[in-house]
């Protein structure tokens, strides 16, 4: 018995030693396999390995509640561990507020914004609405008659619709928002003419827009985009800019050197050719932003999001 205990103890010691020696990353995707965060995490894994930045990278999925379950678990388990990373994004900002999450983005160490996508408002090709002005007029005449298809209530699409209505001088609580659980389902409803307009990230609609089945009324970017032939919301007189970004963050309680080392690795990854290839393949926009600039951006967005969620009554 004594031998068994000693052997076990030795084994444990050895195990911990060998674990500490490996220079690797474990990336948490706080979502189920297949979604945007999961794809971001797995692409990071691929590029970090391919570029030789890390030798062993593992992806862990912790799905649930807009990423807040994964975030809570991450803060709890990973504190002080420089090998742990978490992928997240703008959706988390809203989810933290609507789910009254005890853990927020202040509890992690944001490293960098990696990719981003802008929201677009689309209509079927045969729709009477031709411009953003038409939509604003219809909205002002009878907000209930304009039905919006997008993702779940309180998500980026809903927030953007609320911001749009508010900026157009319409009470955001009157937006007739129809929530769908997946991009495909909402797209089907828009193509089938079941709803008036659709709102989501451009990637959801890109191939239909290129095929001429959908028309983009406006984009939520601050300047016109190369890939989308449509005016910005601002050009249409609606002062709203929304970017649905994805970021990578590290564990809380790290030293400045540790943060610097991780930032260097992520920057090397973001600038590598294989990362650019991934972005091109997936149709993701490179919106890399690190350091203080990113932290400041994050602060501004959290405030704006909280305000609109209050306006539409999702947050007390």
């Amino acid at each position: 018995m004594k031998h068994v205990i000693m052997a076990t103890a030795a084994a444990c010691a050895l195990a911990w030693a060998s674990q500490a020696a490996a220079a690797d990353y474990t990336i948490m995707a706080p979502a189920a396999p297949g979604g945007g965060w999961d794809q971001t995490a797995r692409s990071m894994q691929e590029v970090l390995l391919a570029e030789g930045i890390a030798e062993d990278v593992q992806v862990v999925n912790v799905p649930g509640a807009g990423g807040t379950i994964g975030l809570a678990q991450f803060v709890n388990e990973a504190a002080g561990d420089p090998s742990r990373l978490i992928v997240g994004g703008y959706v988390m900002v809203g989810a933290i507020l609507t789910n009254a999450s005890p853990v927020t983005l202040d509890d992690v160490t944001p490293i960098a914004r990696l990719t981003g996508e802008y929201e677009v408002i689309v209509v079927p090709a045969e729709s009477e609405l031709q411009t953003l002005a038409d939509l604003v007029a219809a909205l002002q005449a009878d907000p209930g008659a304009v039905s919006w298809a997008g993702g779940s209530a309180g998500g980026t699409d809903h927030i953007t619709a609320g911001l749009f209505a508010k900026a157009a001088g319409v009470d955001p609580t009157l937006v007739n928002y129809i929530a769908y659980s997946g991009g495909g389902e909402a797209l089907a409803a828009i193509l089938g003419g079941q709803v008036t307009v659709g709102i989501s990230g451009y990637g959801e609609f890109q191939s239909q827009v290129e095929a001429g089945q959908l028309r983009v009324l406006g984009v939520s970017s601050d300047e016109r985009l190369e890939i989308v032939d449509a005016p910005t919301f601002r050009e249409g007189g609606v002062d709203v800019v929304v970017q649905n970004w994805r970021m990578v963050a590290a564990a809380p309680d790290l030293s400045a050197e540790q943060v610097a080392a991780i930032t260097a690795d992520i920057e090397a990854m973001a600038q590598s050719e294989s990362w650019q290839q991934v972005l091109a393949n997936k149709g993701w926009q490179d919106t890399y932003l690190a350091g203080d600039a990113f932290a400041e951006q994050l602060r501004v967005e959290i405030e704006a999001t909280e305000a609109i969620l209050r306006d539409v009554g999702l947050v007390e």
Partner: peptide, 17 residues
């Protein structure tokens, strides 16, 4: 999905989905 309100979750985050 339509209103973003939690039902029968009793404040347990794992039940939210």
């Amino acid at each position: 999905l339509q209103t973003g309100q939690a039902r029968l979750s009793f404040g347990v985050p794992w039940l939210l989905d």
